[in-house]
Design a protein around this nucleic acid. Structure first.
Lengths: 193, 193
DNA sequence: GCTTGAATTGAACGCACGTTCAGATACTTT
DNA sequence: AAAGTATCTGAACGTGCGTTCAATTCAAGC
């Protein structure tokens, strides 16, 4: 997809993806045109096709690379399940609050993926959810947690954590570490620990 | 906006809003054309303008009427705060799971509202959230709950409940009453009750 | 300084968009 | 049956869309 480094003064490739990311997060995939992205990059629309074969692939690549980074960055867990749950909670909040645009896109624009691409992203998302579910199931077995339904608890915790992205703004009333502490407290209680 | 009852064989007005609701929920506001909506209704595109002055107002009216119904349907609360919280939880789940399309639209398409319309819908949403916050704040004061931060707890509970719409399908593994019970259990725990 | 090849332009392609409106049609009222 | 009114059609308006591609510009290697 991306070519070798440009011979012009600045590197266009990364700018294309950054511009697409910001514009799509703000206005939505369907509402953003290739010409708008090109204008943001400082280039004519035709030049974008040096960096993506088409608009659909541009969206997919944003989401795929985001999910890949998410799965790679999630550390392998060890220790007690409560400690694992805390690690997961803090990781999730830090990772998601650091890239609000990609997070927003990755679940608002799922319906604009073609079926093959949708399947790929869905599966990556499921891998991530499975990591949390394993913690909850483990903790339920050792009776560190009380979880009536593992699947539901997984979805509930993830939804709760994702919600932070709708209201948190850096420099607001609470620092990130405050948010982490309060949310972990609520997560912990919600699984009966 | 909507005219008197049609003189043709069937009533077109409601069909317009129903078609718009279903198509927008599926493909997104920006991706749905007036011609697609018209085709679904069984009419030419021009006829839609008997029922809405423009596309933007069509979206706004879907969201406004949905939020109005939500605020009207939410029963006035009485009794202990824990009981109020249970009532709220069950109401929220029932109301939202009964109209997944409008729920989806009402928070996915906020960015496609013009500024005035956005302000109106946001304020209605805030009214709803304030109802829950009042319960949590009340319960915190009577020490029925332990809530470190009322605002955060409100957002967390609403996000958790909204998450149900992403996975619940009628006829699935769990009946609605099961879901209500399990979620109330998690909500209750998350506020320390 | 000439050659090479990547990067970019700028115009063009067919198509769909939201919206308008004069004219046609269907129904209600008299 | 005629008049009146609500409903709808069908064509048209200007505009912008994703994508392609021959021609041009640019930077580097010889």
């Amino acid at each position: 997809m991306a070519r070798k480094q440009g011979s012009h003064s600045t590197i266009t490739g990364p700018k294309v993806f950054a511009a697409a990311r910001d514009l799509i997060a703000q206005h939505g995939f369907a509402a953003v045109s290739m010409r708008q992205i090109a204008r943001e990059v400082g280039v004519q629309a035709g030049a974008l096709y040096l960096y993506t074969p088409d608009k659909q692939t541009l969206l997919f690549e944003l989401m795929r690379s985001h999910m890949e980074e998410l799965l790679t960055a999630l550390p392998a867990q060890s220790g007690g399940f409560l400690e694992q749950l805390q690690n997961f909670t803090e990781f999730h909040l830090q990772f998601h609050l650091a890239r609000p645009e990609l997070v927003f896109i990755s679940y608002m624009e799922l319906r604009n993926l073609n079926p093959e691409n949708f399947a790929i992203i869905s599966q990556m998302r499921k891998s991530y959810e499975d990591r949390l579910e394993a913690i909850l199931a483990g903790g339920d077995q050792t009776q560190e947690f009380v979880v009536p339904d593992t699947k539901l608890a997984t979805m509930a915790v993830i939804a709760m954590l994702n919600g932070v992205n709708t209201w948190y703004r850096p420099g607001g009333r609470l620092a990130l570490t405050d948010v982490e502490a309060i949310y972990f407290e609520m997560v912990r209680h919600s699984v009966g620990a």
